[in-house]
C-alpha cells in the first residue's frame, strides 16, 4: 500500500522524503496524466506520493543578489505575469499548453518531469539557472543545464525536494524565443529555440542559444557560443554557414508521432539562421 502525504510546510515535506522514496506532485499536470487510472478512479501510484502544492513558503517569487528565485509551487500563470521573471521565460510560458493548464502547472514541475519536449527547460539551460535542492542533510545547487540527465531522468536524490529555481540576472540587447508546435495553442513542441545576444560597437559581446525537443536534453554548447563572441557583424555574416554547420551537430532529432527527423533538423537550423540574421540585421526582439 502506498503512502500519500499532503505537506503544509517545507520541514514536513523534507522529513517525509528523509525516509520515503516518493513521487512529488505540485500542479500534477504531468503526474496525473502519466499515472492515470480508469475514469473515475484515483491515479495509480506505484510508490509513495508527496503533495507539495500547499507549502506556502514554496510559492514565492523574489529577487536578491543571486538573481530571481522562483518557488517550486509558483504556477506558470503567476510567472507569466510576474514582472521580476526573465522575459524569455515569460514568453516561453505564454505558449506552454493552454491557459487553464498554466493555472496549475509549475516551472519546477516542468524540469522535474524532464520531458525532451519541455519548453521552459530550454530557458532554464539558456539563462544559466540553478536548481536548488533541499533535504534534511542540507542544500545543493545544480546547474539547470546539467540537472536533466536524460528522458525523464534528473539529478535529484530520493530525499531531496526541489525548492526553487534561481535565474541570475543577465543583461543583453536582443533575444529570441521560437516554438514550433503542431497548432497555434495547446500544443507540444516539435522544436523550440531560445537565444540572446549583446552587440556593442558592431561586435558581438554576448551570445548564447539553446535548442529544445531536438535531443534528449536541451542542446546548448558554450564552446561553440564562445566562438561567436568577439566577431564583428560582418564576420558573423560571413561565417554564418560554418557556424550554423557547427551548431547543427549539437542536435539529434528523432522521428515520432508528432514530426520527423528531417523536418526537425531543417527547421531547427532555419530558426538558428533567423536568429543570426536578426543579430546581423540589428533586430531588437
Amino acid at each position: 500500500m502506498v503512502e500519500k502525504k499532503i505537506a503544509y510546510t517545507k520541514k514536513e515535506a523534507l522529513d517525509f522524503l528523509a525516509n520515503h522514496d516518493a513521487y512529488i506532485v505540485a500542479g500534477g499536470s504531468d503526474m496525473m496524466v502519466i499515472k492515470k487510472n480508469v475514469a473515475g478512479y484515483a491515479p495509480l501510484f506505484d510508490k509513495d506520493v508527496l503533495y507539495v502544492s500547499h507549502i506556502k513558503e514554496l510559492a514565492n517569487i523574489y529577487e536578491d543578489k543571486d538573481g530571481v528565485h522562483i518557488g517550486a509551487i509558483a504556477t506558470m500563470h503567476e510567472i507569466e505575469h510576474h514582472k521580476l521573471c526573465p522575459s524569455l521565460l515569460r514568453k516561453a510560458i505564454s505558449e506552454v499548453a493552454s491557459t487553464n493548464i498554466r493555472h496549475f502547472c509549475t516551472l519546477v514541475g516542468n524540469i522535474a518531469n524532464a520531458s525532451p519536449a519541455g519548453d521552459t527547460i530550454v530557458i532554464d539551460a539558456l539563462l544559466d539557472a540553478k536548481v536548488k535542492l533541499e533535504s534534511v542533510d542540507g542544500v545543493r545547487l545544480v546547474d539547470a543545464k546539467d540537472f536533466v540527465l536524460g528522458v525523464r531522468k534528473i539529478d535529484r536524490h530520493p530525499n531531496e525536494l526541489i525548492t526553487e529555481i534561481i535565474f541570475p540576472k543577465i543583461e543583453y540587447t536582443g533575444e529570441l524565443w521560437f516554438k514550433v508546435g503542431s497548432r497555434r495553442a495547446d500544443s507540444i513542441s516539435k522544436i523550440s529555440f531560445a537565444g540572446y545576444y549583446e552587440v556593442k560597437k558592431n561586435v558581438v559581446t554576448k551570445f548564447a542559444c539553446c535548442f529544445g525537443s531536438v535531443s534528449i536534453r536541451p542542446a546548448r554548447s558554450k564552446e561553440l557560443e564562445a566562438k561567436v563572441v568577439g566577431l564583428t557583424l560582418e564576420e558573423l555574416k560571413a561565417k554564418q554557414p560554418q557556424i550554423a554547420g557547427d551548431f547543427a551537430q549539437i542536435i539529434a532529432p528523432i522521428d515520432d508521432q508528432r514530426s520527423n527527423k528531417e523536418y526537425r533538423q531543417t527547421v531547427a537550423m532555419n530558426i538558428f539562421n533567423k536568429f543570426i540574421d536578426d543579430i546581423v540585421g540589428g533586430a531588437k526582439q
Binding site: S182, R183, R184, A185, D186, S187, I188, Q257, R258
Partner: peptide, 11 residues
C-alpha cells in the same frame, strides 16, 4: 487529442 491535432480556437 494531444497528438491527433484538431484546430483550436486559436487556429
Amino acid at each position: 487529442l494531444t497528438d491527433y491535432i484538431i484546430p483550436t480556437f486559436e487556429d
